[in-house]
Amino acid sequence: MQRIAATICTYNRYNVLAKAIESVRNQTLSKDQYKILIIDNSPDYEKAKKVQQEYHDPPFLIYHIERIPGLSNARNVAAKLCETEFIAYLDDDAIACPEWLEKIVQGFDQFGTDAAVLGGRVDPMWEIERPSWLDDTLLSYVSVVNWGGEMRVAKPDEWFAGANISFRTQDILDNGGFDVSLGRIGGGTSLMSNEEIHLLDQIKSKGKLTIYAPEAQVDHLVEKKRLNHAWFRKRVAWQAVSDYQMDSEKAIEMARSGWNFLLEYFFGLPPKERTIRGLFYDTDDPKQFREQLWVLSTFTTMLLAGFNGVEK
């Protein structure tokens, strides 16, 4: 009986999709216990149809073309189609280790029916050398996850990345799925996120468990186009928008608490940078760049709030 669906949602990433599919074809979990589900959200329908012909091989591999755009919608479609007890999401630019599905199923079985979500380790595959300004505290923005230790119930501050996250399928359906107002749509113009966080918050509020399983590991591509200051500024600004969309009161409160730091940051800059340039000038100093991103996040949130409540 197929217990788990290894699911890859893709958008016009055929250059990397093949390796992701190959990695889930070659799992140590018995092939009669899992299926592969591809949700193709690409804009070129005719091209998607051609790729579908290469891979569609039901019941083991189902290649579904989804015309409604959006990652959250694609994930919801997968949850409705999979007909399996569990569903494991893998990014189209990630490669699963051979034991990935085996460790996921093992984790759910070990912690019982209260275990609703399981996240695994995500190691980076750097397309180019990691920049010197990229501080460890910023690695979450490129979905690097490594909490160490052994399989366990996750601590409250241990988050999972969408590149490697699994669910008891019914818990997705019972909680309304991924919020389609959050998450990515299209090719990356918008970097909305938090769809996983929003769903996990709902699931955990019902007393369900989230499990961290480090051996359910994947390698995730960090593309060259992301390894520059401009992309990180964009990513942080959209994160602020996502946080505001999910819980505006909490986001505003966080921004207010950082307002004094924002002022201190600007006063500490060289005189010529104490303008709007202070939000986007380039620096190779990891600490200075990290602080710039924090200030940019605070500024974005307060801008969304109309600077309501800021001390004049």
Rank of each mutant, 00 (worst) to 15 (best):
Q2H: 14
R3G: 09
I4T: 06
A6M: 07
T7S: 10
C9Q: 10
N12S: 12
Y14C: 11
L17R: 03
L17A: 02
A20P: 06
I21K: 14
N26M: 13
Q27D: 03
T28G: 09
L29S: 06
S30E: 08
K31W: 14
I36D: 09
D40M: 05
N41F: 04
P43E: 12
Y45Q: 14
K49C: 15
K49P: 05
Q52R: 11
D57V: 06
D57A: 11
P58T: 01
P59L: 01
P59D: 00
F60G: 06
H64C: 11
H64W: 08
R67E: 14
I68W: 14
G70C: 03
N73Y: 03
N73L: 02
R75L: 03
R75H: 02
V77D: 07
K80T: 11
C82G: 04
E83L: 08
E85A: 01
L90R: 03
D92F: 00
D92I: 00
A94G: 00
P98T: 00
P98S: 04
E99W: 02
W100G: 00
E102L: 06
I104F: 03
V105A: 03
F108M: 07
Q110E: 13
F111Y: 06
F111N: 03
L118E: 12
L118G: 15
G119F: 01
G119N: 03
G120C: 12
R121S: 08
R121N: 13
P124Q: 07
W126Y: 03
I128K: 10
S132I: 09
D136L: 15
L139F: 11
Y141A: 08
S143G: 12
V145T: 04
W147H: 07
W147K: 06
G149H: 03
A154D: 07
K155N: 09
D157V: 08
W159R: 15
G162R: 07
S166V: 02
F167A: 05
T169V: 00
T169F: 00
Q170A: 09
I172D: 02
D174W: 05
D174M: 13
G177A: 00
D179G: 05
D179V: 04
D179E: 08
V180D: 13
R184P: 06
G186F: 00
G186A: 01
G186C: 00
G186R: 01
L191K: 05
E196H: 13
E196M: 11
L199R: 08
Q202F: 12
I203K: 04
K204M: 14
S205Y: 02
S205W: 02
G207C: 04
K208T: 01
H220T: 02
L221P: 07
V222G: 06
E223P: 13
R226A: 13
W231Q: 04
F232H: 02
V236L: 02
A237Y: 06
S242R: 05
D243H: 08
Q245I: 08
M246A: 15
S248V: 06
K250L: 14
R256S: 12
S257D: 10
S257I: 08
L263R: 14
E264N: 08
G268C: 04
P270H: 13
P270A: 11
P271S: 10
K272I: 12
R277W: 07
R277S: 13
G278R: 04
P286V: 00
K287Q: 15
K287T: 15
Q288T: 15
R290F: 10
Q292L: 01
W294F: 14
F299R: 11
T300K: 09
L304N: 03
L304D: 02
L304A: 02
L304F: 01
G309I: 02
G309F: 02
E311R: 15
E311Q: 12
